[in-house]
Nucleic acid binder design. Structure first.
Lengths: 179, 179
DNA sequence: CTCTCAATTCAATGACTGTTGAATTCGAGG
DNA sequence: CCTCGAATTCAACAGTCATTGAATTGAGAG
């Protein structure tokens, strides 16, 4: 499938360095197919990468399913298990393309914005936007170190270990004292 | 200066998208000078960006200067003020070049490794490597959201606000309970 | 002045890039 | 068998890139 090949190559090289030819080659088709089906490299990138790894709305319902003081743990656990799976490529492609593709930043921004704003609005509390940004910073940082920079302690750590370590951070950013 | 121009352009565009011509133009010289002085685009990148954002050793001494239970606050404050200043270009160039340049990942990895390992060895405690990785994840994430993805609540926040919010996280990662 | 040598400019080169349009294949419908 | 049209290939194009080497400048030493 052309889309899978695209995700893989974009994840490895970022937008600029990933060539249409190499993507097509990995998918076993001619480079011209990219134009025929997706209108060009840009369209392929949009279809393959610029879709959110998952629907914010769906995630919100999942995360509401449990006690509020374990919300941080559920968030970290959900993100890690999803990213460890198929979504990892998409996330990695997003990060790796931030330099050469403004839209990548926008998608990342909007994802966290939608997701956390929807989540946090039910929680009440002050300074919602800052809290969202703080959560995003910790989650993105975790993803960057684990999936992109591959800092080994973070790569080898079990999901549960990371959940235990990081969950209190998100919990405080969401519902705790940030002054 | 050619090196300053290089840092700026690499920071704006990442390695692949930054052209030798545009760097040379910004520095007011011919593109061929890059080859003459640095042996090519690669060499220029190494000299301009592939240096640690600042000396780990120097930072460690700064950070030791104060009570241990305010260590997290001093770290966040130090990084933010440095990144808000000149160092931001180097950091941004590193992040933006992670996609196309494996060496950029290595530098980032080694910086946090050296820095925090040197810092944390005096603190004792278990699971040092994991603690380092956790601190790195929060700091890099904060930098990514503030300087690269430009998530507005994080961009507009005052340094002190962020210090107050993030410091407890690092403090716990360094000296607290992470189980 | 002249010689020298490094610094700098200039034009050209070769390698990729995304994209295009014509040519070709191939299978289903008449 | 023939036809039509979509799917796919192929070769070529125009553009941009880093890099190269020869030409040019400019200053300092003899």
């Amino acid at each position: 499938m052309l889309l899978e090949a695209a995700r893989a190559v974009f994840a490895e090289n970022g937008y600029e360095r990933a060539t249409v030819r190499s993507i097509a080659a990995r998918a076993g088709v001619d480079a011209a197919m990219v134009n025929h089906w997706f209108g060009g490299k840009e369209g392929l990138f949009a279809q393959a990468v610029l879709k959110l790894p998952f629907e914010p709305a769906e995630l919100v319902t999942v995360l509401h399913d449990g006690p509020i003081d374990e919300l941080g743990a559920r968030i970290v656990h959900t993100f890690l298990t999803r990213w460890d799976g198929v979504g990892g490529d998409t996330f990695q492609a997003l990060i790796r393309s931030i330099a050469s593709h403004e839209a990548a930043s926008t998608v990342l921004r909007e994802f966290f914005s939608q997701f956390f704003t929807g989540l946090i609005s039910d929680l009440g509390g002050d300074r919602r936007e800052l809290r969202v940004a703080l959560c995003a910073s910790q989650l993105v940082g975790m993803g960057l170190i684990r999936y992109v920079a591959r800092f080994s302690p973070m790569v080898e750590a079990e999901v549960d270990t990371l959940v235990a370590a990081v969950a209190p951070t998100l919990q405080r950013y969401l519902t705790g004292d940030i002054d």
